[in-house]
Amino acid sequence: MLRIRCPWCGERDETEFRYRGDASQSRPAADAGLAAFSAYVYERKNPRGWHLEWWLHVGGCRRLLKLVRHTLTHEIRVVGTAQDQPSLPQEPGR
């Protein structure tokens, strides 16, 4: 089970959160066309390694968090707000 350190609520169990997908995707402009929206909705890198992702703290503050999580080791390096722009670490996760 993941433990996520919510910037507002403190460290909480994964069960309080709702995973909301890949946070590296940003919604295309309205006129970006079908291909861009198709990529936004369907195309995912599914990396083995660091991953930027959305978690909504539905069981706590109901804020949207942006996490940097390692998909193999589950290490969570950064828990930020929706507006944060963390860069993905270079080194392998623990």
Partner: peptide, 13 residues
């Protein structure tokens, strides 16, 4: 509600 909260915070902050 989650759909609205997500989009308010992620897409149209």
């Amino acid at each position: 509600l989650e759909h609205m909260e997500f989009h308010l915070q992620a897409v149209c902050p």
